[in-house]
Simulated assay, not measured.
Amino acid sequence: MPRFALITGASSGIGLALAEALARRGQALILVARQRDALDSAACELSQRFGVEVLFRVCDLSEPLQISGLLHELEQSGRQIELLVNNAGVGTSGAFIDQDWSREQELLELNVLALARLCHGIGAMMERTGGGRILNVASMASLLPGPWMSSYYASKAFVLHFSEGLREELKGRGIKVSVLCPGPTRTAFYRNADMRLGKLDDGKRVMTPEEVAFLAVKALRRAPAMIIPGWRNRLFACGVRLLPRWVMRKLAGRINRLALAS
């Protein structure tokens, strides 16, 4: 039986690009998302193009009971997960107290609780079967506070710090943990969050999902603690460390407000 990589949010964007990059290297896949038609199409295409086994499971990861069902099915199936990619996530934009609370709650359930739950459940399975790797997808937003996207930035800060802590806890158990921090990427994320990239989307500052996935999968061979794809993003990360937090807070707030207004 093949060893699988399980990827959440795998029906589009970075998740789908990661699935393709892994399939290209002969990796069997389990794709997880909410959209059945998109998952079915992606699974068929990847299997035919690369000759690997590709399964899919429809699961709304913002619903705890559906996560429990997914974990139970994985336990019962006996399929071995050698790589968990926690990519699923959503964003909201605008002043926090003006948002519909149900959207904010969904963000926290998906970006924070679902990711932690899958790390807990699948991490335990990995330990029992000899180890594995976990790649959690955060964002450059994890490095600073983000006014007008406060919940999203905070949720990605959780992913970053949680992943680094988990890395230390699990390295003696045969499980390697890395966190991916992409910058602005040309996906449906901004449209779904009611934002536009505007002047940032000049073809140079914004990477494609395929570029992010290629660099991430390439870096996974070394299993570093943090993967920041693209030299512009790495330069920005250095700037965040050097500049006062109040400056970064003001800058992020200005950029986010402009994206709302564009």
Rank of each mutant, 00 (worst) to 15 (best):
V58C: 15
G130T: 02
W231S: 15
K204H: 04
L243A: 14
R57P: 04
H72F: 15
G131C: 01
M207F: 11
I30W: 02
A5E: 00
G253K: 11
A193T: 10
L235G: 06
A28K: 00
P209L: 05
G165C: 10
D98Q: 14
P147A: 04
G69I: 07
K199F: 05
L70Q: 03
G130F: 00
Q48E: 14
S139K: 11
V217F: 00
T208Q: 06
H161E: 12
V58S: 05
S12M: 15
F214Y: 07
G203A: 14
G132Y: 01
F4T: 01
M149I: 11
P209F: 06
G51W: 09
R245Q: 14
E75T: 13
A28L: 13
I175T: 10
S142V: 08
D60R: 05
S47R: 09
V240D: 03
F50Y: 12
V85G: 00
T187Y: 13
Q48G: 06
W148A: 10
G94K: 06
E20M: 08
Q66R: 05
N136G: 08
L6I: 15
E75K: 15
A138I: 04
D40C: 14
W101N: 06
R196E: 12
L108G: 02
E164T: 10
L242M: 08
Q48P: 06
A17Q: 08
Q27K: 13
M226S: 07
L220N: 00
L170F: 02
E82K: 00
R34I: 10
F162G: 00
F56I: 15
A157Q: 11
S93D: 04
N87T: 01
L170Y: 00
G15P: 13
G131T: 00
G78L: 09
Q76W: 14
F50K: 06
R232H: 12
R249K: 07
M125D: 00
V212G: 03
I67G: 01
L197A: 10
M207H: 12
P209A: 03
A138Y: 01
A213I: 02
G198C: 13
E109Q: 15
G239L: 09
S150I: 09
M140K: 03
A116S: 06
A261H: 07
P147L: 04
L39D: 02
E63T: 13
I7H: 03
V240C: 07
S93N: 04
S139L: 07
Q105G: 03
G13P: 13
A138S: 04
L65V: 06
P64S: 10
P64Y: 09
E82S: 02
